[in-house]
Design a protein around this nucleic acid. Structure first.
Lengths: 123, 123
DNA sequence: TAGCATGGTTCGTAGGATTCAACCATTCGA
DNA sequence: TCGAATGGTTGAATCCTACGAACCATGCTA
């Protein structure tokens, strides 16, 4: 695979991860994820608990949950009127992001193979 | 290290990576990074080239470069009035992000050790 | 020194994101 | 069936971000 092809793939991967990156780039959504990890004994965490945890209104929480869901970070499990949200057990977003980061790392390692200062001097 | 301590560290890591995540979550900045990788034969890429490459005004490019610089993605090298921007050769942002992702992965692996569906059923 | 090239900054604007009050839909229990 | 509980959605206000026109600062060159 030549370099141009590799960059093309990186660009594709970049744009595919856009949702995921902006999703976890937000502080509020980060704290929602933390809240989910802090309640591992349940089948999920309910919306009401998140509102208490984050001191946010329900519409706000609902909005952020939607963003996280669209980015495949979380899933829902309905039980009556109660909605249990849980982190995506397939971890698809983690795998995607991991792959992206590793890809960047690989390309940059090749990029700077001959110069520790980041710009090739010979030419 | 107990679980609570681990989550505390994750929260810290999360917030420390906030800048980096929003930095590369933006499409324009992604394309700027790609542009930099596509011009590996220079000691860096000049602002004017990026404006041509992205069809953006100089203020806009300048703004994005500042964001990328604050997130330690890139560095500058001044030469007269010319500013050469290059990807951070220490790759500090890559290492940070990589560590964050791996941390999330580890915690989630532990989180779901007994249930492939993401919510523990026994209780 | 005068003019030019390069690129940062300032400022105002447009669009998107975040938020809450209010409202609506669904389901459970009495 | 009626009321309470849960939580999605709508609409409007507010804030933040991206953007370009105009301007300013710096350094090269003639």
């Amino acid at each position: 695979m030549d370099n141009q092809e590799r960059l093309k793939r990186l660009a594709k991967e970049f744009s595919e991860c856009q949702n995921a990156l902006t999703a976890i780039g937000d502080q509020t959504r980060q704290s929602i994820i933390i809240a989910m990890l802090e309640n591992p004994d349940e089948k999920g965490i309910r919306v009401g608990e998140i509102t208490k945890y984050t001191n946010l209104s329900r519409p706000a929480v609902s909005h952020h949950l939607k963003v996280l869901k669209d980015a495949h970070f979380i899933g829902v499990h309905r039980e009556g009127t109660k909605n249990y949200y849980y982190l995506d057990p397939t971890k698809s977003f983690v795998l995607r992001l991991k792959h992206l980061i590793e890809n960047i790392e690989t390309i940059m390692n090749e990029y700077y193979w001959d110069n520790p200062f980041g710009h090739k001097k010979d030419e």
